[in-house]
Nucleic acid binder design. Structure first.
Lengths: 226, 226, 226, 226
DNA sequence: TATGAATGAGTGTTCATTCAT
DNA sequence: CATGAATGAACACTCATTCAT
């Protein structure tokens, strides 16, 4: 996952050249530790000296890799975004139509959240007002990509006559993505986990796949030409 | 809004008795400043000494009102929760059925977010993993209230035969509330505002009421007996 | 014990007139709490607001009784000194000779320490360099009284031919009093208790009266005309 | 005196590794200042930031050397203990018998107190009830060492028939050490200095060596087989 | 006179960042 | 380059004392 080469051509990288020259092991370790810390404590409360020590990297090296704590944070986030982007791209390519895409998106939201809970906690942090100054520094906004996917699938669906003719595609895209985002967070932070439990009850919470297929079915009803 | 009497009977208050004894002006000023700071900087990065100074209150007085920075934060949040709870209660009472309730909920989400953007930014913060230890201290979880409203309205709707008979009410409640939460946040933090703009485009973004009525219509389709 | 009238004529009192006008109960409570706090935490670490609260006295009243934290402390200490002085006076009057006096002094050291452990801990504090500026404010130095008693008894003993003729009475008084002081502290602070245990072992520590009579016997040997 | 190497093998050190890596000059300066401050103001009233500033060390460095103010304090104390222990060990080795040992102990008490008055003031502080929690952290209690020396010398003396056959050695050791402790403090804090003056008068106070030899002679009388 | 809310300088400690080695 | 000791502003919180009521 954390393969630095993937971002090497990225024009706005938040790490210094030096970072590409360290061993992949070192980079991996740093990432792991940084994600642990940032996800658990949030950006502000995270101590970059702690990260360095736990990763077995000197604080001096740290600052030769990243210009600041903020840049370390953004590097982590960017990397996670790239991963998510790839997942989305694959998903879009494999999806037959908008219904299939949403089904896959819902599934992926859950799986991605469960596979990378800490990364997701960090994203949640990033949506926070206090970190908004950072999120603007991230050019490859997830939403830009997602929006495009929805746009394409709705265009195709309209052509094929799969969806209601009176559909406001943008509003609907916004709605569908919102559902996915909330679903994703519902597996990420304690807060949203607790919230989901309250809504679903223990029974349904433990049979999440059924819940998910219901959600998907409702969405189908909502969108599909009757 | 920030009338301390409203919480006086609240069993788990996060402020000390002394706070009830200061002038309402002083309390109001403190609220305002605290919300400003916490919403702009997040919990961790907010300086309680700054709040005190900007509110024209000595730091000593500050600590005679609240046992800790955390308690000041929770007092702010609790107060906002109480307000939202009241809004929800009124809404529930005035709503005719589940469709009406959702329509109102969507509207209220937007209006509340626009009226108290800073408070909403603070809530967003609270859903963050790093503040999860605080959110558990807030017993009167918004979600518990919301869940109940949905449960009641769906029970009523089933009785009246308004909704599809195969409806998984809990999954649906979760879905509807998720939509409202995301909608609310979409007017709160810069991040979500930006995201909404990307999805809706400038045109629709500026005609938000139409978007909202579309969303509501889709939900109707999804739930109502065809 | 803590009868304020006893000090009323004292020329250098550390309390204000107001203090004599409060109820004896109030005064007693204040004493008790102040001794608790000062003995447990030491002068510096003791919080005068805490004392006030625990004694059920307003901090305002506190400062109407005593000009400062230091004066409260000195009032406590002075009072204890007066008590000790009285004990010493009685002891001196009842003692037949220097041997009897020392025997009683040793006994009284133990009993006084066990009866008023907290007061003794406070005295120990007062011998500390950092509190020396306070101890100079206390006119009725214990030692001045003690010195005089020893002087009288040794004069009497010389006259009666009870003691060795080559005795350096001042050095001996210093020695005897030092023994009493250390013995007294040995029942006061944890530190000296522990130390005594190490020297005596569990067995003797639990049969302290025998140890005490041995000590007394040794001193007799040292002083008495052979 | 303040050679850090002396404690390097000490298993319970209260300083961090980093402290061993600074220059000896820096360490020395820090020690000097810390002893000055702690001895003059007592533990509680001493400000660690003051110490840092006066020693020309940043507060950050301070906390990279010691985990807390308490640990700085204990490091100082421990170091002094080690020194005293060494003095005691040498003394014990050079002493011919219990009489010689006590004579030397008395002398050393005075000399050590006069050479390191501030260190001794700090020890006095440590015997205070409020610092008892700290004294328990110091495992190598002076008294344990001292007790052993007395035990050995009394055993030897009994074998050689130098002392009274009815001697309670433990009580006697306690007595002798108590005398030394008080004698030592008599040269350390203002309080005890003043007290000694009161007992001895100016004349004898200024001829302390004679007083000391008298004390020693009395002890001899007390212990030796007549 | 009694109250206790208010004050604000001060405390122990943290941490992003620098820089000599 | 890498290291990690060093920096010092900043922080959450305390407490002796004041003063309006």
């Amino acid at each position: 996952m954390f393969d630095i080469d993937a971002t090497e051509n990225n024009e706005n990288r938040f790490y210094k050249d030096t970072f590409t020259k360290t061993s992949a092991d070192r980079r991996k370790k740093l990432w792991d530790v940084a994600i642990d810390e940032f996800s658990a404590k949030g950006y502000s409360a995270t101590n970059i000296n702690d990260i360095a020590r736990k990763a077995g990297v000197s604080i001096g090296a740290m600052y030769s890799y990243f210009a600041s704590k903020e840049d370390l944070f953004l590097t982590i986030v960017e990397q996670g975004y790239l991963l998510l982007e790839m997942i989305l791209k694959n998903m879009a390519e494999e999806s037959e139509d908008i219904f299939d895409f949403f089904r896959r998106a819902l599934l992926a939201s859950r799986e991605y959240a469960l596979k990378y809970p800490k990364l997701n906690q960090i994203y949640l942090d990033l949506t926070t007002q206090s970190l908004s100054s950072m999120s603007v520094r991230l050019s490859n906004k997830m939403e830009a990509v997602t929006t495009q996917h929805y746009r394409n699938f709705f265009a195709q669906a309209k052509e094929k006559g799969l969806v209601r003719s009176d559909l406001d595609e943008r509003a609907m895209s916004f709605l569908l993505d919102s559902i996915c985002v909330m679903y994703q967070f519902s597996f990420s932070s304690e807060y949203y986990k607790e919230r989901m439990k309250l809504f679903l009850g223990d029974e349904e919470y433990n049979d999440i796949e059924t819940v998910e297929s219901h959600l998907q079915a409702y969405i189908h009803t909502m969108i599909a030409k009757s």
